[in-house]
């Protein structure tokens, strides 16, 4: 039985202590549209919808956080690009806003008064008000190192990274300026922590050596200037080869992927970096309630002891296709297997 507020539970776990039970972050964004009977596009057209949707999700799944995140392409919209909506998934970023290296000199970091950013801040303020200090509200920024995938396309960005370091660093400086401002505006609006989404940092995407020379330096600079604690998320990418580097960026938690062994991650990170994960969001769509329970139990067994663990999915966003039944089964399994002390683990 829960004896702590979500805020106290999460804070205790992030301090590497055992709270009353394992905290759970069901990172649902588009499900709010389903709850309100709206299209995803309409849902994300007004902060009030997101506030209402998150309140419903929180009550329905007894979630340990509120998640005001809209979709990744909002940052691209702020930079002057487009978002392309579909009916059953997060919108894609439209055509690249950077096509040539000259464009890097021309683009300007978005103003915080941009309507899409204002809407995001309005959703945060509404949810912070609702949380009343009892529930963590999680802000989100895309890392300056990863957002160019949407600014210029993956291929263009990899070419830039390998072939034009001067332009790469010019872009990083502009992206860093925006990222720090945007994160700190969210901190000012009251978020408990900022998720620093950095999929390109993952060793699935760039080599550890490359990361140390680029994305890690960017992360160190940005995270040190953030007015709220950060949790780095690699969005389904591998982390083990760069754990020490991620620790050195000063982040407090790490979203980890299902392709790596959670027990090994826990062993390496114990006492230094809290873990967030690592339920397979793609596979989750087809789980039965029994499978969901087994997966939750397995995660808790591997990473729950000693705290420093929040059960979540491995991507940072649960697909629209995942059913209420599976989500409720996950949540029920946390109640069944997540209560501390975890005496059932031999």
């Amino acid at each position: 039985m829960d004896t702590m507020t979500s805020m106290d539970r999460v804070m205790a776990s992030l301090s590497h202590k055992e709270p009353d039970r394992v905290p759970v972050f069901l990172l649902l964004t588009m499900h709010g549209a389903k709850e309100l009977g709206m299209s995803i596009k309409d849902y994300f057209s007004d902060a009030k919808n997101v506030i209402e949707g998150q309140k419903i999700i929180h009550a329905k799944y007894r979630n340990d956080c509120l998640n005001p995140f809209f979709y990744a392409a909002t940052e691209i919209q702020a930079w002057g690009g487009d978002a392309i909506f579909i009916d059953d998934g997060p919108p894609n970023a439209g055509a690249p806003i950077i096509r040539t290296t000259e464009d890097i000199d021309d683009i300007q970091p978005p103003d915080m008064d941009h309507p899409i950013l204002r809407m995001g801040l309005e959703a945060i303020e509404g949810l912070v008000d609702h949380a009343d200090g009892q529930i963590p509200v999680i802000g989100t920024v895309l890392s300056p190192f990863s957002v160019p995938v949407m600014q210029m396309g993956f291929e263009g960005y990899l070419n830039l990274m390998y072939e034009d370091q001067d332009s790469f660093w010019r872009l990083m400086r502009k992206n860093e300026e925006f990222c720090v401002k945007w994160g700190n505006e969210q901190a000012k609006a009251g978020v408990t922590a900022v998720a620093y989404f950095d999929p390109l940092a993952s060793s699935s995407m760039t080599t550890p050596d490359q990361y140390r020379l680029t994305g890690m330096k960017v992360a160190e600079r940005v995270i040190s200037r953030m007015d709220a604690p950060t949790a780095t998320h690699l969005a389904s990418g591998r982390a083990l080869p760069i754990i020490e580097d991620i620790v050195s960026t000063g982040t407090g938690a790490l979203g980890v992927c299902t392709l790596e062994d959670l027990a090994e991650l826990k062993r390496v990170c114990k006492g230094r970096l809290s873990l967030l994960g690592n339920l397979n969001g793609i596979e989750m769509r087809r789980w039965t309630a029994q499978q969901a329970e087994e997966k939750v139990k397995d995660c808790i067994m591997k990473a729950g002891p000693g705290g420093g663990f929040i059960l979540s999915d491995n991507h940072g966003e649960i697909p629209f296709q995942v059913s209420d039944e599976v989500l409720l089964a996950i949540r029920d399994a946390v109640d069944k297997w997540g209560e501390y002390p975890l005496d059932w683990i031999v």
């Binding site: 291929e155 990899l158 060793s203 699935s204 995407m205 760039t206 080599t207 790596e260």
Partner: peptide
């Protein structure tokens, strides 16, 4: 197997 990165595969 997670031993090399996508950037290396692409290049």
């Amino acid at each position: 197997k997670g031993q090399v990165s996508l950037s290396q595969v692409y290049m």
